[in-house]
Amino acid sequence: MTATTTSDRSDLSELGRSEATLRAFLHGLPGVDQVGAEQRAAQLGTRSIKTTAKAWAIDLAIRMVDLTTLEGADTPGKVRALSAKALRPDPADPSCPHVGAVCVYPSMVPYAAEVLRGSTVHLASVATAFPSGQAPLAVKTADTRAAVAAGADEIDMVISRGAFLAGRYKEVFDEIVEVKAACDGAAAGLPGSPRAHLKVILETGELATYDNVRRASWLAMLAGADFIKTSTGKVPVAATPPVTLVMLEAVRDFRDTTGRQVGVKPAGGIRTTKDAIKYLVMVNETVGPDWLDPDWFRFGASTLLNDLLMQRTKLTTGTYSGPDYFTLD
């Protein structure tokens, strides 16, 4: 799919009606040449971002971090500490922006909500039997409703990779539609609460090919995803630059086709400022400034934030501080 003008915008809402129409559409998307996509991603990684550009990019990257903890060992205390850090990442420097969101398991949402209430930091919860997604649909929607009821305004769901790889696109589509409905706070018995944004995790490390990444991206967007996200961080291969490139091309083409803008969130494995800046360059040169905003691009990460803070301090003071000067959570 490629750039089209506004007047050509198509209504694709009927595609989810049947397995056949979905399949015909997804298999009709142009292919992705693996060598070419990887080469392009590597080329974008050679951009040299220095001085003022670097300072600007670091602040933007901080604002885009979904500060994440997704461990069985998470405690209310840890989640409170992480949420406090989300609000004031660098206590020594009030000019440092806050992060985009905190991302936790549903059972931890109430503790994060206590701390974040009244701030503009979003509260994301994974749901739908994260990370495997191997649970009945009723459990997945209940999981989602519980997270929304507890105060999450963003839901990170996983798709059923098994169904996708088996070609049961309609099943994946319907699940996303159901979960999207469960994101509606009012329907969950919270009158007046807004609908939570839905991020759909494709788990690209299990999709095997870039063609599948492109198809899964379109499938999620057609079903109503507000964001498409690469990974759970729980399988060996998480976000990579070429996978993110293919997903960015998908959201770009989807907006050209339908007029609706969808966000992108690479997650897992992005640990350094250098890596984060490479992703921002890719966003800038693939989809442009419209996506250079925390509403449309996020990093799912836990250790990235401290490296961003260290590089930020280095730029403003000219010296590197030791890791002891930054909070561990």
Partner: peptide, 11 residues
């Protein structure tokens, strides 16, 4: 017409 469009444009 069946080219991988994004990579073709790069090429």
């Amino acid at each position: 017409d069946d080219a991988p469009v994004d990579q073709a444009v790069e090429g």
